[in-house]
Amino acid sequence: MDKTTQIGQFTHWINQRPNTIEFWEISVTPKHLIWCFAGESYRSMLLRADTAKQRRSRIKEATPTELIDLHEKNFQIPVTAIKKISYAKGTRLRRGTLDITCHQNEKRSEFSLVSTSKNVSHHSTLEKLRHHPQFKHVEITTNSKGILNR
């Protein structure tokens, strides 16, 4: 697998844990969604820092086969297990969200991420997925969170 097999990337996402914030990037290939751990920071405003900048640049430059080995927390989900991808664009008051539902080995998993950037648009990646033959079985939705959208 090389760089040309990447369909798109969902970039600048966080998973909010009880005491920390995890930074994630998701690379999309015809066969997998590859989840790349980009860093972690404390939730406290006094201790918070974006520790993901350097890893994001390494993730962006890596080929899909190299991505899994960049960090021990990285994992991949086969496209056949993905059932739904829902993207809600952020507003002036609320951040955007990305929700992914999958069924794998008789188990349902849901992942919910929050955007860290208002400047990154994911509409082009979602449109590519809507028209890609490997994603025909995936329900892909895009919506707004409210009337105060930019």
Rank of each mutant, 00 (worst) to 15 (best):
P64E: 00
L113Y: 15
L98Y: 05
I14A: 07
R17T: 14
E61H: 09
T20I: 08
E25D: 13
S44C: 08
N15T: 10
A52Q: 05
L47G: 00
N105G: 12
F111W: 14
Q104H: 12
L113P: 05
G90K: 02
R48K: 13
T29K: 12
A38Q: 09
N19H: 11
R17W: 04
C102M: 11
H32Q: 12
L47T: 07
E61P: 03
P78K: 08
F23R: 06
F75Q: 02
E22H: 14
T101H: 14
T51N: 13
S44V: 09
S57P: 01
T101N: 12
R108W: 05
L46G: 12
I77Q: 15
S57T: 14
S112T: 14
S41F: 09
G96W: 00
T101W: 13
R17Y: 05
D50R: 15
E66F: 07
E40M: 15
E66T: 06
M45H: 10
M45F: 12
S41P: 06
E61T: 13
T20N: 11
P18M: 00
I68E: 04
E110P: 04
L47H: 03
F23E: 02
I34L: 13
P64G: 03
E40T: 15
N74E: 05
P78H: 06
C36W: 05
M45W: 11
S44T: 13
H32K: 14
Q16H: 07
H32C: 10
K53L: 07
I34M: 08
S86P: 00
K84R: 15
K53I: 14
T63P: 01
A38N: 09
R92V: 02
F37V: 11
I82F: 10
A38H: 04
K73A: 05
R48P: 00
R108F: 08
D50Q: 14
I21Y: 03
I68K: 12
T97R: 10
S44R: 11
S27W: 02
R43Q: 08
S112V: 12
T97P: 02
I85F: 12
D50P: 12
R95M: 04
N105D: 15
G90R: 03
I77E: 10
D99P: 01
P78Q: 01
P64I: 09
A38K: 06
I34C: 08
R108L: 12
W35Y: 15
S109A: 11
I34S: 06
I14Q: 09
R17Q: 15
W13S: 04
R43N: 11
M45D: 08
T29V: 13
V28C: 07
Y87Q: 00
V114P: 00
Q76V: 06
Q76C: 11
V114W: 03
L93D: 02
I68R: 10
D50W: 13
R92C: 00
F75N: 03
